[in-house]
Design a protein around this nucleic acid. Structure first.
Lengths: 210, 210
DNA sequence: GGTATATCGATAATTGTATATCGATATACC
DNA sequence: GGTATATCGATATACAATTATCGATATACC
């Protein structure tokens, strides 16, 4: 427990959590690494290693306590204390994310959205107010916002990102298909649809050319 | 060239392409791996290795021909010949993806959407017709659709996925936060928002506890 | 035309991740 | 209570990805 966890492991943790909370595990009290591995198509050794880094041990013969595991995973992933975030770019994708109410389950709370189209200012989308971009700095500062979500077109992304960093944002979730340059201590997580599509597309191409 | 490319490399290719096409490279004729690496925060050796697997060589002292590189990347990624796809789940996220017109740039063409809410049938979103789920099998079969996009709530995801596979789908792009079980030859690419959030959230937690 | 140098490409070392092996232990069952 | 066994956890191996090293080569400049 408490060792530094690799990004790969980290990204598997929500998947474990999701499985443990799902219907098919409803009545389970103990869950073995083997069961988890088989359900997710992973190897049991990997599951054990992943879980070992965020939770206290399981019991031989029976496995891991489900509720303990859920509690530890949620704590580690920060689902208990919520993170406030702002979103910039209230276009189609931006509005969809604002309306999506699943984020609070993951401890993410979007408190405001911004757009440089002033005609949107004053509207609401999924209970989140859309405001003029000029107010971003002030609000981030006052509310100590640390997460920024970028859903603007690519050419504008870097500029918005710079403004976010200047406003005290520490982690950027970038939905624009563009590379962002940031100071060292800032984290950028790209939700790169093009990259995903590349994997899909090549899979099909390979299937039909050999 | 033409060696099998790792998923990691594959996912970087669209990023290279995006950079090469961006404004800041507008007037360049030759681009060196060093330039690319610096722009993207990567190492030049990695860039050279990645490019070597999809394009023919560069020239010492000057670098790679930009247009050749763009052409080879687009060919490799299949941006030239388009892939038809269907989408299931015309909720908020589904509609956002339908309305997003950036996919055709990547060679993805969503031809129809399906939802089990019959009241949506007949509507259009971003020029894509929304149809009754019961018609999915028939349409996939007739149009030889090979890509399916899942934007339904988690509990329904596996069932939809099974129907897709039964309809001849070979690659699934899964936006539901759920693990999908599929036969071996089927590819599932998860667009896992929870996993991304985990990375963001832990970054912040680590920042504030050491 | 000759030389210096930027950049490439191949090979090698390193790091990191995933998988395998094996002894230890708590539970279940006799 | 004793024994068999499922499962854990630690150490070790194998594999894949990234980073480093170095010689080769085409361009630029004198």
């Amino acid at each position: 427990m408490l060792t530094s966890v690799s990004v790969q492991t980290l990204q598997r943790l929500p998947v474990y959590l999701n499985l443990l909370k799902s219907e098919c595990m409803q009545q389970a009290v103990y869950v073995s690494s083997k069961t988890i591995a088989e359900s997710l198509g992973l190897h049991e050794i990997q599951v054990r290693k992943d879980l070992a880094s965020v939770s206290s041990g399981g019991k031989p013969k029976v496995g891991f306590s489900k509720i303990t595991l859920i509690r530890d995973l949620e704590t580690y992933l920060g689902y208990n204390d919520s993170n406030d975030a702002i979103l910039v770019g209230a276009g189609k994708l931006g509005k969809a994310l604002l309306a999506y109410d699943g984020f609070k389950e993951y401890g993410l709370n979007i408190v405001a959205a911004f757009d440089n189209d002033e005609s949107l200012a004053g509207q609401k989308e999924g209970n989140v107010p859309i405001l003029s971009l000029s107010k971003m700095n002030d609000i981030c500062d006052r509310m100590k916002i640390r997460i920024g979500i970028i859903t603007v077109p690519s050419p504008a992304a870097q500029s918005i990102c710079d403004q976010m960093v200047a406003s005290g944002i520490l982690a950027v979730w970038n939905f624009a298909p563009a590379h962002l340059d940031v100071p060292e201590h800032i984290l950028v997580k790209n939700e790169n649809m093009a990259a995903s599509l590349a994997v899909l597309s090549r899979h099909l191409m390979d299937k039909f050319t050999d």
